[in-house]
Design a protein around this nucleic acid. Structure first.
Lengths: 340, 340
DNA sequence: GGGCGTGATGTTAACGTAAACATGGCTTCC
DNA sequence: GGAAGCCATGTTTACGTTAACATCACGCCC
């Protein structure tokens, strides 16, 4: 370990300036890469910084500049693939733009929970906020945030009040359903996600309208909770329906459970039954059989969130309403024409 | 640059003080819940705050107090279950302790990449850092961090230089291997993770020593990269080995791929072959068949990281060396005695 | 009844940085 | 040769908050 660099007392610009034999302002200029510092001086300052182990004090810097170069991300959980992939994309893209990410987890998905997060957030050093709001708030019809905070919302229906970025859920569900109809299946059964999820609601709605538009019967919905286990339970029910030859599960995990149920009941996939998922998890291609699914572009969602928020912060003309990120059908081994 | 005229509404304590007819110091006292403010005054100040939409400036506060109440988390990716679950636990526990989390993604796992992150981090508002270091640095034998930064490391071998928290990889691998031997299998084949991963290395080592301690032959290792796809490829090889009746895959995803390969080759699980994974993903119980695996307690890992770091920040006697979080075997449907 | 604690509130200064302005030496050009 | 300009660097000040100290009114006790 370098000895001279004990940083307990906080090395400041003044200290560096003293050692380098220049003024604090010159240290500031070097520190920020401003022009107009002669090379020899620059080197002296850099040496002094090195020697003292100087690191700029970001609090003072933020105080002076009036910005933190940090974005807050409010979310309920990182446990879902969608959220963690989106957050990763947000963090990566923000870093590229010179912004850091502060995570603000909300324990309970209620208006109070979110407001509590904002209160803490008010005391946090953030310039703007991205809210990843994948479920309906339990105690409020819509989301109301404190004024004076720049916001972008992911995956919500707050589009009239805040800029929203979302995967095009409806089009994805339509593609999935039409793919199965196109293979010749008379209709498509659906395993839906939890009622409080926006994404789940939209996928189910689009599945239904696609069937109706094609003049097909709409079978009863099986409700799951995104987990593979719930998909398994739904699959056991569907395996008992002799007329069921095609299933659209609202996510890949439930599709995994559905397929397990069919395996256990001796129904082959895709020989007897076809299955389509939604998400395109990294492992979906290794399911048994490899899963046909709808690919979501989480990286693009994250990128657009950051861009939208930064545009707001710079007072550039931002997009209003909802921005939809397209999905695409990935055909693998779990779908085929119906038996017979 | 953009015209500096447009700043945030910028309500400061002075503004609140003016409206409430008190001094800024009294506003500060109310803001921080300090005693010695009479109720009537307190109310006046709170009203003024409400009216003006005052939010404390955390930069000024941090500058004055010398702390940010924020912890940085340096990581390479959120895409692995382990990392995202650990980060979620860290964020939750930190929030409970009144700390926020700043994410610092590192694009490339090299010494330079990490140092780059620290440079950015030096300019970030953090009091300490948790490094989630699941792979060997590509260009340095071990991790060297700038001095003067409080650090806790997850999942690494830096134990002699920094406090480390990690899952007890070796004991988990031992449990997995002994479970299979205990069922009567003559030996256990292993699908390992990427060479640069610490966890992978340790699991493989413990698997090997467990076999050796039991006097069993050590079959050649199949190397994967954590992905289900790589597990599938390894599984195809193993399915060609008639003597292979038991497989320990270094994570659940690869176990998923291994099982798919066996299914495709007509080897039943657990009738012909037993499979054990590592991680206990939320979906592992819904694999076909439900996977016997080693459960990792990511929440506990996160909690201990935060506790350890906060102890350091408070200059309390911290633990040195490596703290191991125990694992436990979860027996499901993918393991049984060998055929015959 | 005067000295004196006590408790509420105000005043001052400082945290580390960077914008704005000031200085002073050196070149350039007529 | 001297005014003008320019460049490198220095000085001043303010950002919003809070610790430390200062003040002031009131009541209490001998």
């Amino acid at each position: 370990m370098t000895a001279g660099a004990r940083r307990r007392p906080g090395v400041s610009m003044a200290d560096v300036a003293r050692v380098a034999g220049v003024s604090a302002q010159t240290v500031s200029r070097v520190s920020n890469g401003h022009p107009g510092v002669v090379e020899a001086t620059r080197r002296q300052v850099l040496d002094a910084m090195q020697q003292l182990g100087y690191r700029p004090n970001s609090a003072a810097r933020a105080l002076k500049r009036g910005e933190f170069r940090t974005l807050g991300v409010i979310l309920f959980t990182l446990a879902t693939t969608g959220n963690s992939r989106t957050v990763e994309a947000i963090a990566g893209h923000a870093a590229r733009e010179g912004y850091a990410i502060t995570l603000i987890p909300v324990a309970v998905p209620t208006q109070d929970g979110v407001l509590g997060a904002f209160t803490r957030l008010g005391e946090l050093a953030v310039d703007g906020v991205i809210v990843i709001m994948e479920v309906h708030l339990l105690d409020a019809a819509d989301l109301t945030l404190p004024p004076g905070v720049q916001v972008v919302v992911v995956d919500s229906d707050a589009g009239e009040r805040y800029p929203v970025v979302d995967t095009d859920q409806a089009d994805g569900a339509r593609q999935a359903t039409e793919h199965l109809l196109g293979l010749g299946h008379p209709t498509v059964w659906h395993v839906t996600g939890p009622a409080e999820s926006f994404a789940s609601e939209r996928r189910a709605h689009a599945w239904r309208s696609t069937l109706e538009a094609a003049g097909r019967p709409v079978p009863p919905v099986q409700r799951g909770d995104w987990s593979a286990e719930s998909g398994y339970r739904a699959g056991l029910v569907l395996a008992g329906e002799p007329s069921c030859t095609a299933v659209f599960a609202a996510n890949d995990q439930m599709a995994l459970g559905v397929m397990r149920a069919f395996h256990e009941r001796g129904r082959t996939i895709p020989g007897n039954v076809s299955v389509v998922g939604f998400d395109d998890l990294p492992d979906s291609g290794a399911f048994f059989p490899p899963l046909t699914t709808i690919h979501q572009d989480f990286a693009e969602v994250g990128r657009r969130c950051v861009d939208g928020l930064l545009r707001q912060l710079r007072h550039e003309p931002g997009h209003a309403g909802t921005e939809l990120v397209p999905t695409r059908l990935v055909i693998r081994g779990s779908t085929a024409p119906p038996p017979g």
